[in-house]
Nucleic acid binder design. Structure first.
Lengths: 167, 167
DNA sequence: CGCTAGTTGGCACTCGGTGCCATTCACACT
DNA sequence: AGTGTGAATGGCACCGAGTGCCAACTAGCG
């Protein structure tokens, strides 16, 4: 894991048996080799949110959507662990991941605003959207540190904290 | 504002009447020209948190600390607006800012764990820390979009949402 | 005056990323 | 078969960020 920078794009291209120029046609950035799937997850989140009836409150809707999107099969968990470890340990990767999360936040803000019947630009949906992503990140961090923990129950607990509040 | 990339380091160095090499001795990265002050804010947050009595609950402590750190004088607000605009509009800058926020999150998790009497690595302080920063970011976003809004009251409202919960 | 330590900045280099263009290859259409 | 066309490929040159190395300057101090 030491040395994400140590692996140059030329290495990756050569490893893929492809020219450097071609590499950049498939991955807009070296970081996208690691983070590409996050966009798929965003798409999944959006459709999962849309599938929840409009009468459900935003927190429950987000909880359902995230549980659905994060329902990884046991085979995929090692890959997810590696990816999240990279995100947490390599600042460059974490920075890029944060940019991706902004897309999630926009989707969540729009969804919450629709359910609350207010504008997405208002304070409450804006705070809600960021807070939901934050809770998920917290669950991920704890999951990474505790190898025996179950991701699903951590996500549920994080959302419970959110719903209950921290007052 | 168009063109953060368009301004090269050579431009900045020349504008500062200094050599390119010397520029990199003062700013480890081009982005630090914009984000350097965030570290000062982190230091301020840490000391503000430490100044709140240990008997105060984490949410109230964080609210006090953030109100103190974000108490900008009217003269500084335009600068803050510019910086936050850069953070929100230029992905590169936003990405780096997110990395800085992680330092805030670590400080908040440690503080909350101490107040709750649990380990910082547990789910609740981890979620709490990220959620607090998320709420602040939400308040910033709304403040940026509404020029007449008062930052302080937005922060207060965001923390109220946090305390009340979203259930 | 000479010595030393810290600041400076020029130079060359690596690496990520982009634009341009020649080559190749598949699949048509005649 | 021959030809034409469009997409994928990848080599090449280029730019900008960031780094290591080292020479030159500028204190300060004996």
């Amino acid at each position: 894991m030491r040395g994400f920078d140590a692996v140059t794009v030329d290495d990756l291209a050569a490893a893929g048996g492809v020219g450097r120029r071609t590499f950049f046609r498939y991955f807009p950035t070296k970081l996208d080799v690691v983070l590409g799937q996050l966009d798929d997850a965003l798409a999944g989140l959006v459709s999962a949110l849309a599938a929840v009836p409009g009468t459900v409150d935003p927190t429950s809707a987000a909880r359902r959507a995230f549980l659905q999107v994060n329902a990884y099969s046991p085979d995929d968990e090692p890959v997810l662990r590696r990816r999240l470890t990279l995100i947490e340990t390599v600042p460059e990767v974490g920075a890029r991941a944060a940019v991706r999360y902004e897309g999630w936040e926009r989707a969540l803000a729009a969804d919450a605003a629709a359910r609350w019947g207010c504008a997405p630009g208002e304070l409450r949906p804006q705070v809600f959207a960021r807070v939901v992503v934050a809770a998920m990140r917290g669950a991920f961090t704890v999951w990474l540190a505790a190898p025996d923990a179950e991701l699903e129950s951590l996500v549920v607990a994080a959302f419970d904290d959110l719903a209950r509040g921290f007052g």
